[in-house]
Nucleic acid binder design. Structure first.
Length: 224
DNA sequence: GCGACAG
DNA sequence: ATCTTGTCGC
């Protein structure tokens, strides 16, 4: 039984998986400009951190109404290590995705894509494993430096790491803390930011993230 | 060597 | 992520 026989157990194995999958990331995009459906994915943890709920909500991209969803209860599949975060939540998220009625046109992940030390964050990993266009929307930075974007909704500044533009720091509402948008798979950065703004007409976070967050929290609370 | 470090 | 009190604002 080698490291490829199952899910990675050690940091070295996880790093090896990232190295092996990274070349499969499609950075060309540009991805759907008018997706019919967009999926949001999020995970909530029980107090001890030994149990989790992974949720995916599928929204009509035009009305932002939830048209499909799935949630599963599971266990973290890896210890939390910055840069290896995806190994913790991926199995449960893939499980939830597999329970959808239809494949969505775009995945919006709660975490980073290319804005990652090895350019392979959760959004890249999820995109490669599913083959679907994916973007990452992080609430806090993992790598990179940036200048504060303008105060208005839609203002942004480049997120730069090792002299490379790895994403954008995007203000989704006037005067709120910006979010960190990066490409995951089969999407361009410009389009990714346009999609995030379209998904956040009223609040800081995209509706995809908000609906998925509510679903996994209520599942943990036993309300489903 | 010392901090920083998605969720 | 989760644990936490009050606070400002619609």
């Amino acid at each position: 039984m080698g490291p490829d026989a199952g899910w990675p157990v050690t940091v070295a194995e996880a790093l090896g998986v990232q190295d092996r999958l990274r070349p499969s990331v499609d950075l060309v995009g540009p991805g759907p400009a008018e997706p019919a459906t967009v999926a949001g994915l999020d995970v909530a943890y029980a107090e001890g951190g030994d149990r989790l709920a992974a949720a995916v909500t599928v929204l009509d991209a035009r009305t932002l109404r939830v048209v499909d969803s799935a949630v599963v209860i599971g266990r973290p599949a890896f210890d939390y290590v910055p840069g290896l975060f995806a190994f913790r939540e991926l199995p449960a998220l893939l499980d939830a995705l597999g329970r959808l009625t239809n494949r969505p046109d775009l995945l919006v992940c709660d975490g980073h894509g290319l804005a990652h030390p090895r350019r392979f964050g959760l959004a890249c990993h999820l995109g490669v494993l599913t083959g679907l266009p994916a973007i990452g929307v992080g609430k806090t930075p993992l790598v990179g430096t940036w200048d504060p974007p303008g105060e208005g909704r839609g203002a942004w500044s480049p997120l730069v790491d090792a002299a490379e533009v790895v994403g954008r720091v995007l203000r989704t509402q006037d005067g709120v803390k910006p979010v960190f948008v990066s490409v995951g798979h089969r999407m361009g950065l410009e389009n990714a930011c346009a999609r995030v703004l379209a998904l956040a007409p009223r609040y800081r976070l995209p509706e995809t993230t908000r609906t998925a967050d509510r679903l996994c929290r209520s599942a943990l609370a036993g309300r489903i």
